[in-house]
Write a protein that binds this DNA or RNA. Structure first.
Length: 136
DNA sequence: GCCAACGTTGGC
DNA sequence: GCCAACGTTGGC
């Protein structure tokens, strides 16, 4: 079982949209590294931190789970889709600022300078720390 | 809106 | 295959 962080801008999709929809196709990834994670490594049941980028503030807004593993995008088979399912919305956003200030998350990809990757692997311990922060 | 970081493209 | 130019991401 792996853990992931998936970024999306609120103007495109939010945790509220996911709560309403239940599940959604994760469309629009146009980066090879991110695609390869979806295509090769994501499995049904993997846990996902749902991250809002370009937000006020940017941060993790809730949790999701992989519902369907990587499959070709019917619109363009170069690219890969997965389906994710809503798990929960955090009472409060766990902001990037908080992530950067939290012990144990120093190596988390999203806290690194210049980290633009929209699909990122997260360790179990990082995932657990963020879930705990989300309950506060 | 600015701009640093970084991925991609394309001329050579 | 190198690398400058260009485009995009995303924090601020």
């Amino acid at each position: 079982m792996k853990h992931w962080l998936m970024k999306v801008e609120p103007s495109a999709y939010t945790i509220d949209d996911l709560e309403r929809d239940g599940t959604t196709k994760w469309e629009g990834v146009r980066n090879y590294q991110a695609r390869n994670f979806m295509r090769d490594e994501m499995r049904v049941g993997d846990k996902v931190l749902f991250y809002a980028s370009n937000a006020k503030p940017s941060g993790v807004t809730g949790l999701a789970v992989i519902r369907r593993a990587g499959y070709p995008d019917p619109a363009d088979e170069t690219w890969t889709l997965v389906d994710i399912q809503f798990v929960k919305k955090f009472a409060n956003v766990v902001s990037l600022e908080t992530l950067k200030a939290t012990k144990g998350l120093e190596k988390m990809v999203v806290t690194q300078k210049g980290s633009r990757l929209s699909i990122q692997p997260v360790t179990k311990s990082e995932y657990d720390i963020v879930v705990k922060l989300g309950k506060k």
